[in-house]
Amino acid sequence: MNVGDQIPELKVTPDKYLPHRYAGASGDFNPIHIDVDFAKMVGLPSNILHGLYSMGLVARANATALADGDPRALKRLSVQFRGMGLPEQEIVVSGTVKSVDDNRVVVDTVATQGDNQIIRNAEAELEL
């Protein structure tokens, strides 16, 4: 593990009903995520993904790439939510190792849909 190394990309295409399943799993039933008509009424192109779902994929990508999915590895994750994520479009999570300090690794991570960065400046700190 060296500074500048890329972590393996995670590619996920959330299906049409993913926001409904995530709403049930997380308890966040904000209608902008699950009601196309409501979302359009408030000026969105369609219902949008939960930001914390996309953040969950960032966590999954880092834990899978660096710790074989061990839930103890991820110690800190900070993100900024920017462009909104949409169902039925592929999400690509990619990351670059920013620092390595003994067993602590920090990874700069982004999540994109096409040219749209849905999560940026994500910084994941793992203890390996």
């Binding site: 408030v42 930001g51 800190r76 994750l77 900070s78 993100v79």
Partner: peptide, 16 residues
């Protein structure tokens, strides 16, 4: 709430 968005988030984990 009409114009609120979730701008950023930090989580720091301790015990699982």
């Amino acid at each position: 709430f009409a114009t609120m968005v979730h701008g950023g988030q930090v989580f720091e984990w301790g015990e699982v």
